[in-house]
Amino acid sequence: MRRLIALISVVLLSMMIPGGLSASQVWPEARPVSIVVPFAAGGGTDIIARQIQRAIQRFTEAPIVIRNMPGAGSGIGTNEVLRAKPDGHTLLLSGTHTVTATLQGLTAGSIIQLDHIASLNWDPFVIAVLDAAPYKTLQELVDAGRQAPGKITIGHAGVGALTHLTAEALNKAAGGPWTVVPFEGGARLIAGVLGNVVTSGVFSQSEVQAQAGRLRPLAVTSLRRTTLFPATPTTTELGFTNIPQGSFRAISGPKGIPMEVRRAIASSVARAMNDPHWIQYARESGLVKTYMANEELERYFAVLTLDLSKLLRQVGLMK
């Protein structure tokens, strides 16, 4: 009898091992993978993270879990990943926010202490004014600022964030015609422009889209025109140089993940980005697809770090 029980237990226990696990699969193992989102649930980066999580989950057995760890301009969540075991089961929704946070010393390590695995997208910014305002082009806004110094203001959604650096970079490229005004978050900035507290603002595309008819987009900070604002010129077209292209988002992990695991994660991300739901979501949100993996992405992060450190020095947020 006892033997029988032992036998049955062994059989039952062996059935608990998931069938999908085979020797050839290096990632994920049969346990949860967490993607740390260093922002609060419900924000722009969080929504993107949840969309990619769902896309990866469709063909992955191990549960993929989003963990929101907001605080210190994404520094808290980044620290969590820096401390994690490099086994591919703790990942970071990284990007330009990770670069600015590490450069400003908000994290316990630098950007090269992370393994950058695969990139997701660019989310370009839009410079917009009140629809009732007399400025039809970005050049008119520049001219108005030159004629009446201190009268034309440009708002951004937070000190040290990329909208801030974009506002400063634009102002510098135009010869400094505007006064740059910080706001706490996108919603306050929208209220500021709608309420005529500031003349213009640096917004995300979805924010301007939600205010269609009340905000007039003057320029988009991407290299090419976007699907959401095909009639709006890019800052590159308008001759502005060294302007950040918007929020860049990628998947990174702690340093030291074995290369075959990194490749496996990168190919899962690539597969998720071909998911029809993701493609539809990305198109409707005006996200610019960009896929780079591992070595190529590492090089790209190095370039981003160099560019953004120049801007951060310029505004005095980095010594």
Binding site: G71, L106, G158
Partner: peptide, 18 residues
């Protein structure tokens, strides 16, 4: 973190105090 300038006030280099 001061929301107007990004200066860290009374944080003693602690990310939580930031």
């Amino acid at each position: 973190i001061d929301t107007m300038t990004g200066v860290r006030r009374f944080t003693f280099d602690n990310p939580f105090l930031a």
